[in-house]
Design a protein around this nucleic acid. Structure first.
Length: 294
DNA sequence: CACTTGACCTGTCCGC
DNA sequence: TGCGGACAGGTCAAGT
């Protein structure tokens, strides 16, 4: 699913498209799964409100409304938030969108604005959700209470990261950086990419990774997330941005989805795919030798 | 408590 | 072609 760079790309798109628009109709097509607290009052409540800021925390989008409420959206594995302007309906088709006519069979919620434009929440696997929450209560949601620091915020330091990772000294480094309470926003793609860049085998126990290497890992996490945002994120299957376009990071990837292809540092070595803590994992065994000492 | 595993869903791909 | 099983980018609850 969308990890930090994908969610940030969607946020940037929506921040250009949504502010100032006023809701006219909300259609919830998959309740309670996709919109657990949807009901007539909630839908009525959305109507008459205008979109304000569009924010992101970790992999979660927060769309503030003029009523003092926020729409909180988690895309999980296959969620999409796709905006269609009035001009997209009828004659003209959205320019380079990968998505066809909307709604389609994965559409779970449809928001219509008074100018005729629409925002679609699509989600094939139904793991994602939308919730309407009073703005002041957003930060009190359980996930936000325990989520770790934002890796790209300048005030987040490598020392913060190292201290938090050390709380997971007994586990392997890959699940440790996937843990959202350690650092926010890293998912399976960027975990593999950052571990390759920092030359750490994903199964290495945290206690065997030196502070210096954790420092490097933090810097590599930042670099890979920033590069991916620049490329509009990774499209493996479902991910599209707010206008339905694919991201291009995967054509720059070093390991993710590159099994049996040459390592970019060691052309004679092929990228291996293995399973670590239940997740598909991609490594170069020369760059990332299994550590001794267990 | 720290850690690991399975469940939540639908769709696709691969091997027999 | 048909069918079963594995797998897919995230998180949580339950298990050890």
């Amino acid at each position: 699913m969308p990890e930090l760079p994908e969610v940030e790309t969607v946020r940037r798109g929506l921040a250009e498209l949504l502010p100032g628009r006023e809701f006219r109709v909300v259609r919830v097509l998959e309740s309670p799964k996709s919109f657990p607290n949807a009901c007539e009052q909630v839908e009525q409540f959305l109507i008459d409100s205008k979109v304000g800021d569009v924010r992101r925390r970790a992999k979660v989008l927060i769309i503030d409304l003029s009523t003092g409420y926020s729409l909180v959206v988690h895309l999980k594995m296959t969620g999409q938030l796709v905006f269609r302007g009035e001009e997209s309906f009828g004659a003209g088709h959205p320019t380079d969108s990968l998505i066809g006519e909307l709604p389609d069979r994965s559409t779970r919620v449809e928001f219509e604005f008074i100018d005729g434009s629409k925002l679609f929440f699509n989600d094939q696997r139904k793991f994602g959700w939308v919730k309407l929450v009073p703005m002041a209560e957003v930060e009190m949601m359980p996930f936000f209470q325990k989520v770790g620091p934002e890796p790209l915020e300048p005030e987040t330091t490598a020392t913060d990261f190292t201290e938090r990772v050390r709380r997971r000294n007994g586990t392997m480094i890959k699940p440790a950086i996937l843990d959202q309470t350690v650092i926010a926003g890293v998912g399976n793609i960027y975990a593999d990419e950052a571990l390759w860049a920092a030359k750490i085998h994903p199964e290495t126990r945290v206690r065997y990774v030196s502070d210096e290497r954790l420092n490097t890992l933090f810097n590599e996490i930042r670099k890979v997330l920033e590069l991916s945002i620049e490329k509009g994120g990774s499209t493996d299957r479902n991910y599209v941005d707010a206008e339905g376009r694919k991201g291009s990071y995967l054509s720059f990837a070093n390991v993710f989805r590159r099994e049996n292809q040459p390592c970019h540092r060691h052309p004679d070595e092929l990228i291996q795919k293995l399973k670590v803590a239940g997740r598909g994992t991609h490594i170069c065994l020369v760059c990332q030798p299994k550590m001794e000492g267990e």
